[in-house]
Nucleic acid binder design. Structure first.
Lengths: 220, 220
DNA sequence: AACAGAATAAAACAATTGTTTGAATTGAGC
DNA sequence: GCTCAATTCAAACAATTGTTTTATTCTGTT
């Protein structure tokens, strides 16, 4: 029941990840998934109860493999130079989101993650607690280390959001980015360049926030 | 034919904008739209040919009204201090995306824009040329002014992407942001604060990029 | 008043959806 | 070799979808 034949259930999960990613929950039909996985339609309901059950397991597996393959520390020791830890964090995000070994960007399962951010499914709640919240805590700790003191959440959290926002936006809008600025759409070849840009930009942004009194009532 | 009764067609457009925004193209059924607009189902096909035709007109109207109500210059003169022009640009993005007078954020038509960025519909191409590309050109011009010289597109364009990325991310992921950092989800009340944060952060980022040699092969 | 074309309405259409049914097949364990 | 549960399969189900059809009402012009 919990450990079925290694073939059918796993094949369904793989095909479903691909197709849910490309087309979204609604457009991905179980007939299409079944055809891609080369299984009978009823096998999906048999193994996963219903379409939502299948989606939930796909989501969990996608996050698990992504964060396992590209951990946010990039195997950097926890006491490394904080700016390098930020660099590793950003690089991990880019590789996790965009690379073929990761979620494959907008052409693959990256789209599935983007869609969950846009409007979360019921299954997303679990993923949020297990992966995203610890991920956020790590980033805020890095930012505090870079600032060399803790300026309070009203500065640190928006910084974290800005860092993550840049990374996600590349994954999210790469179709439009490609049409507007062809060289800056994320590809396997320029992930390092893009990640380093976001890193440098963010270091400047964090430094600026550190030195300003924010929120401020008056405009400079 | 082109200028029908001011009631029916307009009512369909309004209801469709609302419902397409909330539920996406696929989940928004014409029956639901017809019911919300209080018109007969067939009226939609009569006035807009088919569902795709309706969606195309909705998209065009949403962008037109959004950019008209909140122009990226915020009525600032073109020769104003470049940093203030950046502030106006970012503020316009936040208000356009998030405010009730604009696209109403993730609860309203903002979701529709986000979905188009994620995977563009055929109707998006026109919107891209008419609204988004000029918008990008304006931002890059502001960035060049801030840097006081033109460091070339390999620096300016990623800066523009980082600025826009932060703004869009707040619109895009506000559901998740709210769950992770409650005070930083965009609401009508804190748009100014968030916009100013992104502004300060971006000024720091732009300054940092200006002073670095990028792209660089070596890591600092 | 009479007509023509635009606009609205109710009903039906064909296609596709997720799910279920019930029979056939497989594969260990005794 | 038999049994029984787990699995797979083909077929059918009910519900929902976008669209079309046909008839009716409205509106402005002669």
């Amino acid at each position: 029941m919990t450990d079925p034949s290694p073939s059918t259930k796993k094949r369904i999960l793989d095909a479903a990840g691909e197709i849910f990613g490309k087309m979204g929950f609604k457009d991905a039909t179980i007939r299409r998934i079944a055809m891609a996985a080369e299984v009978n339609i009823a096998a999906i309901n048999y193994h996963f109860r219903d379409k939502e059950g299948l989606y939930g397991e796909v989501l969990e597996e996608v996050f698990r493999t992504g964060f396992t393959r590209f951990p946010a520390t990039m195997d950097l020791p926890a006491d490394a130079e904080p700016r390098e830890r930020l660099r590793a964090f950003i690089r991990a995000m880019f590789y996790r989101l965009q690379s073929g070994e990761g979620w494959g960007g907008i052409a693959g399962k990256g789209k599935l993650i983007a869609r969950e951010l846009l409007d979360p499914s019921p299954a997303f709640e679990a993923v949020l607690d297990r992966y995203i919240k610890p991920h956020k805590d790590l980033l805020t700790a890095i930012i505090v280390d870079i600032m060399q003191f803790n300026p309070g959440p009203e500065k640190v959290l928006p910084c974290a959001i800005s860092v993550i926002g840049q990374c996600i936006y590349y994954a999210f809008a790469s179709a439009v980015i490609g049409k507007i600025s062809a060289g800056d759409a994320p590809t396997e070849a320029n992930l390092d360049r893009l990640a380093d840009f976001v890193w440098l930009f963010s270091l400047g942004g964090i430094e600026a926030i550190k030195q300003t009194n924010f929120p401020a009532k008056d405009s400079p």
